[in-house]
Design a protein around this nucleic acid. Structure first.
Length: 908
DNA sequence: TCCGAATGCAA
DNA sequence: TATTGCATTCGGA
């Protein structure tokens, strides 16, 4: 049987343009989209030896769809000039490569493809359609398959059912219900893929669904009934025409042999060097592996998404020996572990993967239990064999989040050393505002779609463990991860290295921090479970009393945890005044609202008390004891090193960075964080670090002076804005000044200040004006920062860490203002984050050098917490401030306050 | 079982 | 209509 290969060129054109970096030749002509599309055609050509082929593009001009629906694709902006300018050369290349190129005026590419696919089926020709567009799934049949060449996803009939939950013949109905945002075709409101598939499964098709529309209950049902007329039109728009009159012969679809000299001239102009070399040297079609480090010019080769690969499964002793030798010899080895659990303290190894050179990776299964599993090497023996290499600090390793792998190996008594790089942190330092998971990185930087974990294991309740995954599947996935990580390093590291400050932050802050965070997490913190348990009982009694009081006061029973029910009672039945709404428009019942209402009514006061205790109980009192590790008897948090865009750490499972402190009830919880017998908790925190950083960055004379002279800065500020001597400032006036000082750090508006202080806007504006008159350097800094952000698209910390602000030029006022506030805050929050990270490194190194037993156990943004044996406490108390205050030299002094006690509360 | 909304804890 | 996070409960699908 003959085959026809069709490529939906238009669907790839935009994707290539946006997915690839802005490649240009020496003439500064953009070339990225050309490269992307050609690269795909080359891959397809290698992959399929089709008898007929065609590359199809949309032509200019209106189509019948525009006629029946003027908004069709109307939301799409005009094609960017940088893309439009690439099209003539792209077409020239395709032509020179010998591909039949089709463009029909007034007909969309989809309809050309549909028509040819129909003809192919009629002529008993098999059809493969390469597209990134899901609409075309409607064409799939036993003789017609889709392939998404960017993601390597193949869709046959079963594939469509698996992906969309409906058959190819139901795809049009499915899309009509869901809508297609790419073409600006709305669906039924609130109906997503799940609902649409469910309905179509039940009723068969849209017609029958419409006939039973009255049976659908709820809001969705109403939405459906409202959309009935539209659905017909949507169907027409979404249906690919398979009967377009095309004057074409099968002969027109036979590929010609490439015009080599023409092609060489084009590649020369476009500077596609490796392809050019291939032509001139008459090499095989396989492109040589590229070393991104050497690609200095705007050569398109560095964007190669041709991740050709050779993955091996290690099942024999000799294979292992072979790979170990390669690891020993390689300059840098990419390493990844597959495990039984996301909890790094519990995780057991299922397998290990390595990559020594892009494209050459291996998977070493150790504990797969899938049916029909082959004999695997004995894991104890393997680990003993590998331990010397893993622990050798001069054998360099790279990975994606190696802190996790270090924990996993530590569970087997192995200390991973020689961590030279981590792609998670490279991406984080380079582009903290984007996602850093391996799948996203591969897509973004290599234009490559990895096999997702869920593809192998499923998701939700039916998800299986990695050990149940078949070994060949696991090899593809795990070896690919190691391979991709190495390739990412080759792309990311040179980018980092271009900006000295970013390279420094990566090398001297983030990389060294891996081991320190690992150690802190491993150390854990001791919890007085009995105390929490007793306190929980006490709180439970209070909650029961409060609940009864609330029900009695309201005159009915209701769920005190339900904001909706509280809304109904306060504003629906009791008719209390609504002062604030939630973002969705419902009357808010948050703390500030209840506090206001509590002045005049009894119920809000009860609710406030209830909420505070309920929160403490569920989030901390009950939860923390359950998080105690059974083996160590301690709580081990996880620090996320690449989550917060400003450079801060984040803590989770459990979050130890939001343990209560403000209320007496909250402090009872801090009392449960204890030191073992014979040890102390010592806490050291930076005093007003962000305000000090603001003084340093803004160089405001008044602020610098206040800090340099060691004054109470809130009191000084109050004196300035109230125009009174410092000695006469009241507590209330100081509180105002403090709110203003903090507000400034967050880029607060007069509205926000008014809300915060409970004063009117005019008064708030007055305070801000007086502040800026007294501290003109600060006003100036705010303005400079906004401008810097707008100009560069990013802001920087004192050490040069960057935060990109993609919304800073947004036409949407809200987004732009949000970005401006973030621009003002990020340098201060981020510099503080840099400083405490330096402090962690300094403290850790000092403890190691002096061979102290004391250990870091927590970091809370501006505070370090240590567990210290009695005999070391005096030294630590004396040395901590010295170390922390001198990690950086600012134009104001840094001040560190320390405390020690049997528990965290007492250490404050 | 999953997800968004509302809420609230920290620095 | 104040920055950065994480985690809880509810309630709808």
């Amino acid at each position: 049987m003959k085959t026809l290969l069709m490529v939906d060129g238009s669907s790839y054109l935009y994707r290539a343009f946006h997915a690839l970096p802005d490649l240009r030749n020496r003439l500064n002509e953009p070339t990225g989209a050309i490269y992307g599309v050609l690269n795909m055609l080359r891959r397809l050509h290698k992959q399929y030896h089709a008898d007929y082929s065609a590359c199809v593009f949309d032509a200019k001009g209106k189509t019948f769809r525009d006629a029946i629906y003027p908004e069709y694709k109307a939301h799409r902006p005009a094609m960017p000039e940088d893309l439009a300018s690439q099209i003539p050369l792209l077409h020239a290349c395709i032509h020179a490569m010998g591909w039949p190129l089709l463009m029909e005026d007034g007909v969309e590419a989809d309809d050309v493809i549909g028509t040819l696919a129909r003809r192919a089926t009629d002529s008993q020709v098999q059809c493969v359609i390469s597209t990134g567009d899901k609409d075309i799934a409607q064409l799939v049949s036993p003789d017609i398959q889709l392939i998404n060449t960017m993601s390597n996803e193949l869709l046959d009939e079963a594939g469509v059912i698996h992906k969309f939950g409906v058959t190819p013949s139901q795809i049009i109905d499915f899309l009509a219900l869901v809508g297609d945002s790419a073409d600006n075709i709305p669906g039924v409101e609130k109906v997503g893929p799940k609902t649409a598939a469910k309905w179509l499964k039940k009723y068969g098709n849209l017609e029958k669904l419409i006939a039973h529309a009255h049976e659908i209950t709820g809001q969705v049902g109403e939405n459906l009934r409202r959309s009935l007329d539209w659905l017909e039109t949507a169907k027409t728009l979404l249906t690919i025409k398979c009967d377009v009159p095309l004057v074409l012969d099968w002969q027109d679809l036979v590929a010609q042999s490439p015009d080599t000299s023409q092609l060489a001239a084009l590649y020369e102009r476009l500077e596609f060097k490796s392809w050019l070399r291939e032509l001139t040297q008459g090499q095989s079609t396989k492109a040589p592996a590229q070393n991104a480090l050497q690609v200095k010019y705007a050569s398109a080769d560095s964007a190669s998404n041709d991740c050709s690969s050779n993955y091996e499964t290690i099942l024999t002793e000799s294979q292992l020996n072979d790979w170990l030798m390669r690891c020993e010899r390689a300059e840098l080895v990419s390493l990844d572990t597959e495990t039984t659990s996301l909890d790094q303290m519990q995780a057991q190894l299922v397998g290990l993967s390595f990559c020594v050179e892009a494209g050459h990776a291996a998977y070493l299964p150790l504990a797969h239990t899938c049916p029909g599993v082959p004999q695997q090497l004995d894991s104890k023996w393997v680990l003993a064999r590998m331990q010397p290499w893993l622990e050798n600090p001069s054998k360099f390793k790279i990975g994606q989040n190696l802190k996790y792998d270090k924990h996993v190996l530590a569970n087997y008594g192995i200390t991973l050393r020689g961590v030279a790089h981590d792609t998670l942190l490279q991406s984080y330092v380079l582009e903290s505002h984007l996602s850093h998971d391996l799948d996203s990185l591969a897509k973004r930087h290599l234009n490559y779609t990895t096999i997702s974990y869920e593809e192998l294991t499923g998701k939700g309740a039916k998800q299986i463990g990695f050990a149940q995954v078949a070994i060949d599947q696991a090899t593809k996935y795990a070896a690919e991860d190691a391979d991709i990580t190495l390739r990412l390093h080759q792309s990311l590291f040179p980018q980092l290295d271009k900006t000295a400050h970013l390279a420094d932050i990566y090398q001297t802050i983030e990389l060294p921090l891996i081991d320190i965070l690992f150690q802190i997490e491993r150390n854990g913190v001791l919890l007085d479970v009995d105390q929490l348990h007793a306190y929980g009982k006490e709180v439970l009694r209070q909650l029961e009393i409060l609940e009864q009081q609330a029900h009695a006061t309201a005159g009915q029973a209701f769920n005190l945890n339900s904001t909706q029910q509280i809304q109904e009672i306060l504003f629906g039945q009791l008719k209390l005044p609504v002062t604030k709404k939630t973002p969705k428009g419902a009357p808010s019942t948050d703390e500030s609202v209840l506090q206001q209402l509590a002045l005049d009514y009894p119920l809000p006061r009860i609710l406030l008390e209830y909420r505070m205790l309920a929160k403490l109980k569920s989030t901390y009192i009950d939860k923390l004891p359950r998080m105690v590790n059974q083996n160590t008897g301690r709580v081990h948090t996880h620090y996320a090193q690449a989550v917060a865009v400003t450079g801060r750490l984040a803590s989770n499972d459990p979050n130890l960075q939001n343990i209560p402190i403000k209320t007496p009830a909250g402090r009872r919880i801090r009392e449960a964080f204890i030191a073992p017998e014979g040890w102390y908790i010592i806490s050291a925190d930076y005093s007003q670090i962000e305000l000090r950083i603001m003084a340093h960055i803004s160089q405001d004379k008044g602020l610098l002076k206040a800090f340099t002279e060691g004054r109470d800065v809130h009191r000084v500020t109050a004196a300035e804005i109230f125009g009174m001597p410092v000695e006469q400032i009241s507590q209330e006036q100081r509180r105002y000044a403090k709110v203003i000082n903090f507000g400034l750090i967050y880029g607060m508006s007069e509205f926000g200040l008014a809300a915060q202080l409970g004063i009117d806007r005019a008064a708030a504006r007055n305070f801000i004006e007086r502040y800026f008159i007294r501290y003109p350097g600060v006003a100036d800094y705010m303005q400079r920062t906004r401008e810097m952000a707008k100009q560069n698209g990013y802001v920087e910390t004192v050490l040069g860490r960057r935060l990109q602000l993609s919304d800073i030029r947004s036409p949407q006022h809200n987004r732009r203002m949000g970005a401006e506030r973030a621009a003002i805050n990020a340098p201060m929050q981020g510099t503080a984050a840099d400083i405490i990270k330096l402090a962690m490194i300094a403290v850790h190194n000092w403890l190691a050098q002096t061979e102290a037993q004391s250990k870091l156990i927590m970091q809370v943004h501006d505070e370090l917490v240590l567990e210290v044996p009695e005999n070391e406490s005096a030294t630590v108390m004396q040395q901590l401030p010295v170390l922390m205050e001198n990690v950086i030299k600012l134009d104001v002094p840094l001040v560190v306050q320390t405390g020690q006690g049997r528990n965290w509360e007492r250490a404050h």
